[in-house]
């Protein structure tokens, strides 16, 4: 366990795990969804910055597991378990999935925020991970930081201040 508390930055389409006392942080979530999985009893937490709902959308040669809701959650869970987390103690908190632009034309098929939220929730159900708290939807960008001491997820927006979940 590290002595000094560090803030671990999670990029776009990225995932990281860490242990107490570090924090996990990702900035500028729009339609993307930030997912935190944590096991307080073993002092472990992980965060993913998910861009797209389904890995079947991938057309590239290499699959970035952190980019898609289905693969990112499985990967996060298996890495936490690999570090000694126990599946029955793992909980989830999520934020993001906003609709940043008011699209007038439905064929713009840009409902990606709501689709990301649905996909994350579906995958959590499949993996039997209880969703403890969420701040999703709306039309504001969010920056989130997860504290591994209090196990609270701080969500900050430009217009609506910050809340702890």
């Amino acid at each position: 366990m590290s002595e000094v508390k560090q803030i671990i930055k999670v990029g776009i389409a990225d995932l990281k795990i860490t242990e107490t006392p570090d924090s996990l942080r990702t900035a500028g979530l729009g339609s993307c969804v930030g997912v935190v999985l944590y096991d307080a009893s073993s002092s472990l937490a992980g965060m993913a910055h998910i861009m797209l709902p389904d890995s079947r959308m991938a057309r590239g040669r290499e699959l970035n597991l952190a980019k898609y809701a289905d693969t990112a959650l499985k990967e996060l869970l298996s890495r936490l378990m690999g570090q000694g987390a126990s599946s029955i103690n793992i909980r989830a908190k999520i934020a993001g999935g906003a609709q940043m632009f008011k699209f007038t034309n439905p064929s713009d098929s840009m409902r990606i925020g709501p689709r990301n939220i649905e996909a994350v929730k579906l995958e959590l159900e499949r993996l039997r991970v209880p969703l403890i708290a969420e701040d999703t939807g709306g039309n504001s960008g969010r920056t989130i930081e997860f504290d591994t001491g209090s196990w609270l997820l701080n969500v900050r927006t430009v217009n609506k201040g910050s809340i702890d979940l």
Binding site: A27, G28, G30, M51, M110, I112, V158
Partner: peptide, 16 residues
């Protein structure tokens, strides 16, 4: 809004 939040919706096609 935050740059990250307003730019990522334009990357949906590319990111696939």
């Amino acid at each position: 809004d935050m740059a990250g939040a307003v730019i990522s919706p334009g990357l949906i096609e590319t990111s696939q």
